[in-house]
């Protein structure tokens, strides 16, 4: 089975810095890491390859430093890694991102399955998977837990609102993978091997024969108009007195705040 896993480099939650003019994220190697949801997709790909053979290509669109997440994917078992990188892709929204990823996948050519994470920890729209399926005109199933079968039809299991849903889908298809599984770390030997065995291919818009007007800001249907940081005010109130009095005044405070009636 030929599998493509889409991987995004995200900015660590506590290190988010926003460019005050463009409202886009400021990235650095130190403050970025692989989108944790994409690790579940990669793990599913590795399990499928174990069972049905084939190969795994990790694909990301991003600036040069996104190479780091591709190295991580290679350490965790990807066979090939491709970086779609072009200054004209900067500030892409999900539509433009899906277009560029789609063009990358067209250039890769042969594939059976595309796996995406459910969402990301920074942009967090959850749109890229489904939009990419539309871009490539592929069937799409979200929140997938389990996959079986190889040729023709795949049997898919997913959990939705208390139901276990069993679906069948024809290949090629795109799945977004449920985060309900544990991810492992690459061992030192796996990391060392990735660096001796592999390299990263980098493609720009010309390589993709992509239309620059459909990428980056010009290809985006949405843009960020304004951004205001929210601060959460927390305060600590100490309740005095013996336990009985404390319980009484706690009850009173909870009722005052409409938390109990």
């Amino acid at each position: 089975m030929e599998i493509i896993v889409c991987i995004k480099q995200v900015v660590a939650g506590d290190r988010v810095k926003i460019d005050p003019r463009t409202y886009s994220l400021v990235r650095s190697a130190e403050s970025s890491h692989i989108n944790p949801f994409d690790l579940f997709a990669l793990d599913m790909a590795v399990q499928l390859r174990k069972k049905y053979a084939g190969s795994i290509t990790a694909l990301t669109m991003g600036p040069k430093i996104s190479e780091e997440v591709l190295w991580e994917a290679l350490s965790l078992g990807a066979d090939r890694a491709i970086l779609l990188s072009d200054p004209r892709c900067a500030a892409s929204d999900t539509l433009a991102t899906s277009y560029v990823l789609g063009m990358g996948i067209r250039k890769i050519g042969r594939f059976d399955l595309i796996l995406c994470g459910m969402r990301t920890t920074d942009g967090d729209t959850g749109q890229v998977g489904p939009q990419l399926a539309e871009e490539l005109n592929l069937p799409h199933i979200g929140n997938v837990e389990k996959v079986e079968g190889e040729r023709g039809l795949l049997r898919i299991e997913r959990l939705t609102d208390g139901f276990r849903e069993i679906l069948e889908v024809s290949l090629p298809a795109l799945l977004t993978v449920s985060p309900r599984r544990t991810v492992r770390l690459a061992s030192l030997i796996e990391i060392q091997d990735a660096f001796t065995r592999c390299s990263i291919e980098s493609w720009n818009l010309e390589d993709l024969k992509a239309d620059p007007a459909k990428a980056g800001i010009s290809g985006s249907g949405t843009w960020v108009e304004g951004l205001t940081p929210l601060t959460q005010e927390k305060s600590c109130v100490l309740i005095e007195g013996d336990p009985r009095q404390q319980a009484k005044s706690l009850l009173k405070k909870l009722i005052e705040r409409n938390l109990l009636s």
Binding site: E67, E68, W71, S75, L185, A186, L188, I191, Q192, F195
Partner: peptide
Amino acid sequence: SIQQRQIRRMARQFA
């Protein structure tokens, strides 16, 4: 190097 950073990242994550 990227390789050294990957190793540090993994160890950090493990710890």
